[in-house]
Design a binder for these strands. Structure first.
Lengths: 205, 205
DNA sequence: AAACAATCTTGACGCCGTCCAGATCGTGGC
DNA sequence: GCCACGATCTGGACGGCGTCAAGATTGTTT
């Protein structure tokens, strides 16, 4: 019988502790942010001893890196899903909006993915996941410009604008300002993405 | 005699402990990032007891918030300085590059200013400092569009692109990738800012 | 000179990450 | 069948951390 699929009911061995720890860590990051995260609390939620996580993820940064990598996986999936079979500027618009939507629905994880000094940026799994997400953007920009491989400058610009509006909207939500919360953040992002698509299409060095 | 200017040589009272703590905290954030920061280490560097910072800044978040607010002060000053008396697109280009330059010269503090869950975003001093920096951008965008007060969408777009390229460049530097480090990051940013200025000038809803 | 508020120290508490030795479990060799 | 072995997890220890409370020290005011 598959060992990892059917977890043993209880006992010294857990069944699939790495998965359980990653889930717990994700939930904890969402609740308390990267700074509120703790290995011991993860272990508690997974029902194991405080030192168990270390055997699978090394240290706290290792587990957080896994959470960040999973975030990239979900981001990639959402961008693919939202793009559908769209091509041209519409593809880029959808990719951008999917990015913003992900950021607003999981702000703590997005902060972790890009702006935490606790994740190991050189981790192979993390890098692969990040590059896959970037690939979706590359594809959409290529479809917009009509060229097979868009130039680096255009890619950097598109990535910057989409990423920037996402993080700034998160920041706006984080502040108690009523003005920032009254409007629909997604609607605010739409204009920014539109300007970005416009520049990708019309800018000539 | 001015009490705060000439610190007492030694003794129970420090002279200007808040200032000394803020300086120590800034240095510590630069060395170890927001996650490596600790109140006790700050106190050690300022030569006071471990609990002294609490009397002036409340808790750890309070001191980090002060560091972030100072970051905004420096950012504002640098943008003003780099803009000089430029007007029009050139003003916006310079403001944007000043922003990137600040981010690259003080990455840990910029991360703290925007992406740390340990700073109190509702702190009055912090908000004022942030709005002052934003005001510099507003002024430059206004000068670019020719209108006295640019629309919110354009502002959001410009801020997003400039901020996004800054944080992504920081991320690139943080990763060990040799490819990212071989090129001059400021040169890479220039094209992005140029595209941003282009969109601010030419986009019509 | 005495009282007072501001400033700083000392000590304590619980939580944290990390290391280590040892207990328990699954599995393959005999 | 059983035994040895590696993988997995426990329990305890250590030092560092943030925060709180009580007390010592200082500058100022009365």
């Amino acid at each position: 019988m598959a060992r990892a699929v059917k977890p043993t009911k209880r006992g010294y061995h857990h069944g699939d502790l790495p998965e359980a720890l990653a889930k717990a860590a994700e939930a904890l990051v969402r609740e308390a942010g990267a700074s509120g995260f703790s290995l011991r609390e993860c272990a508690r939620r997974a029902g194991v001893a405080h030192s168990a996580p270390g055997h699978h993820f090394g240290d706290a940064g290792g587990l957080l890196t896994e959470v960040a990598a999973r975030g990239f996986d979900r981001l990639t999936a959402r961008m693919r899903e939202r793009r559908g079979d769209a091509e041209g500027p519409e593809a880029l618009q959808r990719i951008g909006m999917a990015y913003v939507d992900f950021a607003l629905s999981d702000p703590a994880v997005l902060q972790l993915m890009f702006h935490s000094d606790r994740v190991d940026c050189d981790n192979a799994r993390f890098k692969r996941a990040g590059e896959a997400a970037f690939g979706e953007l590359v594809s959409a920009v290529a479809s917009t410009t009509g060229r097979p491989s868009p130039d680096e400058g255009t890619l950097r610009f598109a990535w910057s604008a989409v990423h920037g509006v996402s993080t700034l909207l998160i920041n706006g939500q984080r502040q108690g300002a009523a003005a920032a919360r009254r409007a629909n953040p997604l609607a605010l992002a739409e204009g920014t993405i539109r300007r970005t698509v416009h520049a990708v299409r019309t800018f000539r060095g």
